[in-house]
Nucleic acid binder design. Structure first.
Length: 867
DNA sequence: CACTGACTCGTTTTT
DNA sequence: CGAGTCAGTG
């Protein structure tokens, strides 16, 4: 997470800027000056240099500050030189932030930290140095998802697998998951490998890896996994790095996946002393036959296992993830100076392979670890912090922290209900305009949504209001089609064997080289075991192609020859311009009449501009896929619109949190798939959302929301119920009366004992209540909350639904899905909004109803009653 | 080979 | 509802 460089607004003395060169006034009597601004816990985290340290840094407690100061401390104490410190983050943004702050703190004293970067960029860097040891060349290409899928599609075809039933994307996801868990093709549990393509999943993974080597390419997962393999198979190389890195720092430890964990484990061991067999530290024999097959991802790591330990005895586990304490303890490393910073309450990437377990078990993994808690929050006012803390306290699997602030209570968190999502957007728009009138900077206003489809409504509204906004997070810069196309041209110039790149642009812009031609090139290439480009050269000489295609292909090849020749005498930025021009690519977009064509041309210019930072084409291509970041406009004043996920690490004075409804937030899908763990992750997401706010946090829920084009009634999120009423204020929607008079729906039961009774009496509450009963009144498809008819059940936990959704410890975690509709064709029904009608079509729980007045509509079945 | 109409399927996202 | 994919046609 990156704390903004901006200081907290409440003038906490601890957060004076560490102005002036630290290096200059090295050590004052009370210690170095850079320590002065720290509170005691932060200071301890900075100064405890020896042995493993876990810093549990709650939201807004100065985590990045601790990390950077710690590095400064190590350096100024002379404990290590810059290149002896390994410091890993997850995102480029975080890495950049740290470099920036470090630079400010140290002045020019220290030039660059070569080993400060993301897991992937550092893994990639190490891999390039030793590429040949993992069957690659040092200029290997890093594939993007698109290339990956294309490659897999080819493999599926070769295996004669129906890619309708077994989509390449799904396989890409599986392989990604395996790599996240540190599993090589041989290590994937056979049962799991079998679930794809009638048992061919494992085989496909293996042949995918083979193909990657042939293409001299690695995917993102490989940057770590191949790195791990490198270390395991080459103990001397590993030892070299263990020797080099005197200190290891890890940011966002709660987000690490198994592969990252294993990688850190390998590096964090002290190098073996003479006399200690290497096998004591590195398993190294993962390739031995007895280890093939179902090997537990973690026990397979086996780092630190004494040689006599029979790894083969490891019980294959049906689920390779759970790790027994005993195994982990057995694998106790020789402690090293590793410092991990994280917050278990902000772990929101479990679905992507992050293992909260890594942080929860730090003390097991690194015996003798010192755990330091940072609980002083310098960001949010009292009510906001209390609400967030109370909410997250509902989670069970936590290390436990209590955030506190010395700030004023400030404004209460507000909860506002509205009739539908449109009214919600209107209400928020008005509130933002009000804030603007009262002098708030729009840069200090953010809307955080659970899912990106929610954004549209706000965009529409803001456009009509003329309110400037920016969407944070969309597709990454280098993921855009035009950027990838341009890169593909450059890749083919740089490396003629890059089949994936060649295939991407053979017919972009259109040159009459369609599927048939490409297919034939493929055949040719496979037969002669040569890259596509070479195959094309050969084919052009024959008359296998129709004259038109043949001519076009020949022209293309000649162009590439020319560009390659020019490469020697032309600056790489200039070359890029020439290529885009001569290939007709620029022209293609200039002719395009669609709305975003202009933006794409801008992006291409931006790409060429960004090339200037690199020495040459080769250097640029090596870094592009790992380091390129979008960003761009941060200058103009605008409201920020983003998902909760991409808000992590940011903070704003005013935070709007719409869509707090069951099914949307917490997300029904997460609940269905992950059960209780999913619920807890959603709750952490809610916690992240609330803790982004400095002064104002505003929650919203709508009673009706259009999902997939059909209207559904929704009920307020259980997270609203979990807020402490003392810190929350229920407000009426200001969005006007979209429906039956004043909007405004009180939230449901607050789980604070004191005075929740009052919320029952508001008209809004009663209306929301009525909706609940109605939606529960029969059809299981939509009976979410499972409330009983009477309100009395609210005082207890969630009451149970008799129809049997997933209930754990009295808490409804997920409703069952896919239930059959209780309606039949031609049923006469009544709908609150549309009146009477007849069912004309049934699709699961979605009904198409011909209403007498409103015409034909699609509605979710719980929305209507049979009459 | 390119274009168009039918069809499906709907989180979160980094690198 | 609407973006993206796919098969069939000009």
């Amino acid at each position: 997470m990156t704390e903004p460089s901006k200081l907290p607004h409440h003038g906490v003395p601890e957060h004076q800027p560490a102005a002036g060169g630290i290096a200059a006034r090295a050590r004052a009597a009370a210690g170095p000056q850079y320590l002065n601004g720290l509170n005691p816990e932060q200071r301890e985290a900075v100064e405890t240099l020896d042995g493993p340290v876990l810093v549990l840094a709650g939201a807004g407690t100065g985590k990045t500050r601790v990390l950077t100061t710690r590095i400064a401390h190590i350096l100024s104490q002379g404990r290590a030189r810059p290149h002896e410190i390994l410091s890993v983050t997850f995102t480029n943004k975080a890495a950049r932030e740290m470099k920036l702050r470090l630079g400010q703190m140290l002045g020019q004293a220290v030039e660059g930290m070569p080993w400060l970067g993301t897991f992937h960029s550092i893994g990639g860097r190490i891999l390039r140095i030793h590429a040949e040891l993992v069957q690659l060349k040092s200029n290997f290409t890093v594939l993007d998802v698109d290339d990956q899928v294309r490659l897999l599609k080819q493999l599926l075809q070769a295996e004669n697998i129906d890619d309708k039933r077994w989509p390449a994307r799904m396989l890409a996801g599986l392989i990604d998951g395996w790599k996240n868990r540190g599993l090589t093709p041989a290590q994937v549990p056979s049962g799991e490998a079998a679930i794809f393509g009638n048992g061919k999943g494992g085989k496909l993974y293996a042949s995918y890896q083979e193909r990657l080597k042939i293409l001299n390419a690695a995917d993102f997962g490989d940057l770590l996994l191949e790195n791990i393999r490198l270390f395991r198979e080459n103990p001397d190389v590993l030892r070299q790095y263990q020797n080099r890195f005197k200190f290891i720092l890890v940011d966002e430890y709660q987000d690490t996946n198994v592969a990252q964990y294993l990688w850190l484990r390998l590096l964090s061991q002290a190098p073996s002393r003479p006399g200690v067999p290497l096998s004591a530290i590195i398993p190294g024999d993962l390739t031995s036959p007895r280890l093939r097959g179902d090997v537990d991802a973690r026990s397979a790591s086996g780092e630190g296992d004494p040689p006599q330990t029979e790894i083969a005895e490891t019980t294959p586990h049906p689920d390779p993830l759970p790790v027994k304490d005993a195994e982990r303890e057995k694998a106790a490393p020789i402690p090293k100076n590793i410092c991990c910073v994280g917050d278990d309450d902000q772990s929101i990437y479990g679905w992507r392979g992050a293992e909260v377990d890594n942080i929860l078990r730090f003390e097991h993994d690194f015996p003798g670890a010192k755990v330091i808690r940072l609980e002083r929050n310098y960001r949010s006012t009292g009510h906001i912090l209390a609400a967030a803390s109370h909410l997250i306290a509902h989670n069970e699997g936590r290390l436990g922290k209590t955030l506190r602030t010395e700030d004023v209570d400030g404004e209460k968190v507000t909860v506002t209900g509205s009739w539908d999502s449109e009214e919600e957007a209107r209400a928020i728009g008005e509130e933002i305009e009000e804030l603007q009138r009262s002098g708030e900077n729009l840069n200090e206003v953010a809307i955080l949504v659970r899912a990106s489809f929610q954004m549209r409504e706000f965009e529409d509204r803001f456009v009509t209001l003329g309110l400037p906004y920016r969407v944070i997070g969309g597709p990454r810069f280098y993921e855009r089609a035009e950027i990838r196309d341009a890169l593909a041209y450059l890749r083919v110039i740089n490396s003629p064997a890059d089949d994936l790149a060649f295939e991407r642009i053979v017919n972009v812009p259109k040159r009459g080289l369609g599927d048939a031609t490409v297919q034939m090139l493929h055949d040719h290439a496979r037969k002669r075991r040569m890259p596509l480009f070479e195959a094309a050269r050969a084919v052009v000489e024959t008359d296998e192609l129709k004259p038109k295609a043949r001519g076009a292909l020949r022209d293309l090849l000649l162009q590439f020859d020319r560009w390659r020749a020019q490469r020697e005498v032309t600056a790489h930025t200039e070359l890029a311009e020439i290529v885009l021009d001569e290939s007709g690519y620029t022209e293609m977009w200039q002719k395009d009449r669609s709305a975003d064509a202009a933006g794409r041309l801008d992006n291409l210019k931006e790409l060429v501009r960004s090339m200037e930072e690199f020495e040459n084409l080769q250097g640029f291509l090596e870094h592009i896929s790992l380091v390129m970041d979008r960003d761009g406009d941060a200058s103009d004043e605008a409201v920020s619109l983003m998902t909760l996920h991409s808000a992590k690490g940011l903070e704003f004075d005013n935070v709007f949190l719409p869509g707090w409804e069951e099914g949307l937030f917490p997300s029904q899908r997460t609940l269905d798939e992950q059960g209780r763990a999913g619920l807890e992750e959603e709750r952490r997401l809610a916690h992240v959302g609330l803790t982004r706010a400095r002064r104002r946090a505003k929650l919203y829920f709508a009673t009706n929301r259009r999902i997939h084009g059909t209207w559904s009634t929704t009920i307020p999120s259980r997270f609203l119920d979990e807020l402490p009423s003392a810190n929350v204020e229920i407000t009426e929607s200001k969005g006007g009366s979209g429906w039956g008079g004043a909007g405004g729906y009180g939230p449901s039961r607050f789980d604070n004992v004191e005075s929740f009774g009052s919320s029952y009496t508001t008209p809004g509450w009663q209306r929301a209540q009525a909706n609940r009963n109605r939606s529960q009144g029969g059809r299981s498809g939509q009976a979410r909350g499972g409330f009983e008819e009477s309100q009395s059940s609210f005082s207890g936990g969630f009451s149970r639904n008799k129809r049997g959704p997933l209930v754990i410890e009295g808490e409804l975690v997920a409703k069952s899905t896919g239930t059959v509709s209780e309606f039949s064709l031609d049923d006469r029904v009544f709908h609150q909004k549309f009146g009477y009608g007849n069912v004309v079509k049934i699709d699961g729980n979605k009904l198409t109803i011909a209403f007498e007045k409103a015409g034909e509509k699609k509605v979710v079945d719980s929305f209507v009653e049979r009459v």
